[in-house]
Amino acid sequence: MIDDPLMARARRLWETLSGGPVPFAPDGGPVVVTAPASALCPPGWVGSVLLGDAALVTAPTDEVADAVRRALKDEPGMLVEPGAIARALPVADVLGPATLACLSPDGFRPYEPPDVTVATLPAGDPELLKLLASVSEEDAGECGLDEITSPAFVVREATGLVAAAGYRDWPGETAHLCVLTAPQARGRGLARAVASAATDHALAADRLPQWRARPEASRRVARALGYRELGRQLSFRLRSGPH
């Protein structure tokens, strides 16, 4: 039994996403299952989520699941380490790792700077799409702003939108945060301001705010708002052929 309510809720979410649902091992360690419909990773990939001392790993086939189990006997720490995975398995592609953080209501540290006005726009507004089009493909994919289901919380300057945040509704009443700042406007606290507004909206709706990030700058914003890092996620695809 986990005595950390935030960790317990995060694990329930990822158990649901595993496609089983598949439970984390109560005593820690990895659980590897065949789950071709898993939402932990793209179709045909292996998905691993480490939360605390326990991990869920989903594989697209029994053959791949067996290969991962064999590799874990020698390198149990490989689950969210690309280098370790590549040494143990014939890896073709890797996504991640990304840090997973969640927020409890009593841990929230709102940020409302007096010199920044945060406005709202509906999801899918043309101004949001213009902001997305102004950044690199990597930044656009990382933020996920085109998938939000909440209103967008934005900062607008003379040139247009320079920062935006919102969230996508996930299972288990989870709000998956999405944040983007235009490159020329970074370093001014704008991401923190719009993310604070989106987080406040999620908490008011009794949702669990979740933040997934690879860049350290994004992780710093989350920590400043009170998000607590609980674990990491990584996906990888094996080369075809015997494993």
Rank of each mutant, 00 (worst) to 15 (best):
S150I: 04
W14Q: 15
G52C: 12
T58F: 02
M7C: 13
L230Q: 12
P110L: 11
D74G: 15
L6S: 10
A67E: 00
Q184V: 14
A205P: 02
S104P: 06
R168D: 08
S240K: 11
L100R: 04
L180A: 13
E157S: 14
G231N: 02
G96M: 09
R219Y: 00
L177A: 12
G47L: 03
A10S: 15
M7Q: 14
F108K: 12
R156C: 04
V68T: 04
P90N: 10
P23N: 09
L132P: 07
L238E: 01
S48V: 08
P110M: 10
T181D: 04
C102I: 00
G141A: 13
R70L: 11
G19N: 06
E157C: 13
R237D: 02
A195D: 01
P76A: 08
T199I: 03
V162D: 04
T120Y: 02
L95W: 04
G107K: 06
F153E: 01
L100A: 12
T174N: 05
P151S: 13
V135A: 10
G20D: 03
M1L: 09
P122C: 12
A39F: 05
P113E: 03
R109L: 10
F236L: 13
D3P: 02
C143L: 08
E216Q: 08
G187E: 03
Q210G: 08
L177H: 00
M7S: 14
L132M: 13
G19A: 13
D139T: 05
R11T: 05
L13N: 02
L208Y: 00
G107R: 14
T16V: 14
A185K: 05
R237N: 05
T58M: 03
A55V: 15
M78R: 05
A205Q: 12
P30D: 06
R70S: 09
A88G: 05
R12A: 15
E216P: 00
P26D: 13
T99V: 11
A54I: 04
P183R: 06
A67F: 01
Y167F: 11
E229C: 14
L72F: 05
T149I: 08
R188Y: 01
E173Q: 14
G20F: 04
S18R: 02
V116N: 14
L208P: 01
D125L: 12
A39G: 15
L72C: 11
T99L: 07
A222W: 00
R70G: 08
V194A: 08
S18K: 03
G144Q: 05
F153L: 05
P76E: 01
S150E: 03
L89M: 08
G124T: 12
T174V: 13
M78G: 04
S134A: 14
S136L: 10
A164D: 07
G83R: 15
L225T: 00
P105E: 07
R223V: 11
E216T: 15
I85D: 01
S150P: 10
L225F: 10
S134D: 09
R156F: 04
A54H: 03
G226L: 06
